[in-house]
Amino acid sequence: MAGRRKWISLAVLSALIVLLPLVFPSGYYYRVGALVFVNALSVVGLVILIGYAGQISLGHAGFAGIGAYACALAPEHLGLHPLLALVLGAAISAAMAALIGRPILRLKGYYLAVATLGFGILVSMVLTNERALTGGPDGMVVSDPGLRSLLRDMGWRVSGGEFWYGASGFVLLVGAWLALNLYDSPTGRAMRALHGSEVAAATVGIDVPRQKLRAFVISAVYASVAGSLLALQNGYITPDVAGFMHSVEMVTMAVLGGVGSVLGATFGAAILTLLPQVLTVFAEYEQLVLGLVMVLVMIFMPQGLLPSIAQRLKGRNK
C-alpha cells in the first residue's frame, strides 16, 4: 500500500513534467515551469521538516541564500565548477543546519518559528551588507555552468528555458523520490512518530533531538540545492532569495498544497509561483490577493488544498 502510494506520486509527477510542455503556448512557459520545479524542490524539503517531523521553520530561505550565493561566489573566487559549487553550498547549508539546529530545535511552536526566522534574516543581512563580496542589494551575476553547450556538442540543441525545465524537473523528481523513500524508512517513521507525540516517541526509544536534527538538515539541503538551481538558471542572484518573504512563501506553498504529501507540495508551489504570473496585469493587487489566499485557505482548508479537494472528491465530507 505504502509502496503503491510512492509510485503513484512519482508517476503523476513525471507525467506532469513530461506532458506539460505539449500544451505550452510559448517558450516562456518553460521558464515558469522551471521556477515551479525549483520552488517545489525546496518545498519538498519542508514537507520532510513540517509534514513528517512536525517542526516549523521560517528561515529556510537562509539556506536557499547560502546555496544560491555558493553558486555565484565559488566559481569566481575558488575556481570551482558551478555544479561543484552547488555541492559545496549544500554541504555548508547542512553544516550550518546541524550547528544551529541543536539549540534551536529544543524550541517548540512559535519559539521555533521565530528562532529560525532570526537565522534566515541574519543570513539575508550578511548577503545584503557585505557589498564587496556579494554586490549588496543589487545582487551579482552567476556564471553559466556550461551544461547547455555540452549538450550542443553532443548534437542536442535546446533553448535555455527548455534545458532548465528539464534539469529542474529531473532534480525535483530525484528529490521527490528520496523524500517518498524516507517516508516509510525507519528514520521517516521515527520522524512521524515524534510529530505525533515527542514524549511517546522518546518512550519507545526514538532519539527525538537526533531525528529532529536530521529532518532539519535534510530540508536545509533541499532548500540549498533549490537556491543553487535558481541562481544557475536565472544567471544572477539578489539577497531577496534569502529574505523573510521568501521563507514565508516556502512555508505557505508547503501548507497550501497539503504539507503531508510530496504531490501537495508541488501543487502548492505551482499555485503560488503562478499567482504573480497570472496577476501581472493587476500587479497592484498581487499582495492583496496573496494575503487573501493565505488566510482563506488556512481557514477553510486547514489541511491544504490537495488533501481537502481529494477528500471532497471521495465524498467523505465531514
Binding site: L58, A113, V255, V295, M298, I299, P302
Partner: peptide, 8 residues
C-alpha cells in the same frame, strides 16, 4: 496548528 495560525 501553530503553522496554520502563523500563515493566517
Amino acid at each position: 496548528p501553530v503553522v496554520s495560525l502563523i500563515i493566517i
